[in-house]
Nucleic acid binder design. Sequence first.
DNA 1: AATAATACAAAACAATGTGTTCTGTATAAA
DNA 2: TTTATACAGAACACATTGTTTTGTATTATT
Lengths: 185, 185
Amino acid sequence: MDKREEKTLNKIHYSFTKLINEKDYENITIQDILDDSKVSRSTFYAHYKTKDELLLSVTNHIFTHVFSKTLEEEKTHDFSKDAFYDYRHLIEHIFYHVRDEKELFKGILKSNGTQIFLDEFRKQLFRFADSYFNNYPYRGNVPTDLKKHIAVETFIVILKYWINNNFKETPEEISEYFIRAIIPE
Amino acid sequence: MDKREEKTLNKIHYSFTKLINEKDYENITIQDILDDSKVSRSTFYAHYKTKDELLLSVTNHIFTHVFSKTLEEEKTHDFSKDAFYDYRHLIEHIFYHVRDEKELFKGILKSNGTQIFLDEFRKQLFRFADSYFNNYPYRGNVPTDLKKHIAVETFIVILKYWINNNFKETPEEISEYFIRAIIPE
DNA sequence: AATAATACAAAACAATGTGTTCTGTATAAA
DNA sequence: TTTATACAGAACACATTGTTTTGTATTATT
């Protein structure tokens, strides 16, 4: 990639993550980003068609790191009664990465234009759930597909709780909450 | 209330619920609403400051009906091991009302400007959970407050599943899923 | 029925933000 | 050194928002 291009993309990303901590996504104008990043209008539109496309770009960049480990281990395991506890390290891994990007997660999730971000998050989490929840033995007659969705939303609501709680708990403790919520007894 | 006022409010509400089934909330302009409802710009702004305020108005109007029964029975019960099954009728009541307003729920939840709607929905559901989940005995060391949030999100994700499934299941079946998701075994 | 109050339509308006297009310049790649 | 291209800066058309004004029609009041 051209060095100039890399530079501007970084400037835009940097300004966006900075602005998302100051105001809601929907209230950030492209003009705000241009002013802060010192990038010209024509340059911005050469890279992104819309503000949403920028958010999606930032989002995917984060998730590449957050889900790196889970993707490696994908499709090597299956859910079984106690085997799930072995996946604890994957869950912890995700929470660790989230904590690393504290401010960004906090900024985006406080915002209203979270839909795009959360949809991408759900996609990633669902792929994770899709691999490991096929033999999930609890919750009786609830359809398997729905069980997976419930697991995903449970993960997200716990994450939001953690964020609103200012990351008071350790990633291990939060992982424990998730596992307790998923596995009865 | 002045008959004229009631008339215009109805026209606006009607056009909004009609448009929300045609396109995403964020893509509906106030001009669209004006064109469809034949209400003038000045009149619209005499009643609503923003489009969000309109959505909130429609939202609260729906939830007045949906949660009517749960509000009546509020603070008369407490959660206990099997007592929860007695609240099944309240849950069913909510799902029944949702099905009555099928199109509106489908339209709004398909959309991206759902945040306002869902936040209000969460508020109502949380108040419900807040009354009945104080002695919820499962999920071990997970904080009570978090348990309530998990219950709320579980409810919502099941509702979304139902909607995407085109209301194939009966309200009773969907209620059963929710109870199965909340109460182990 | 007459009067007062007010909700309304219509139109014009400023203000803001979006997305496009152009020209010339600076910087990287060959 | 030459070629390619990413960039800044500016101007532009366009859509949408929210405000204001004037005159009219409808409702509530007496």
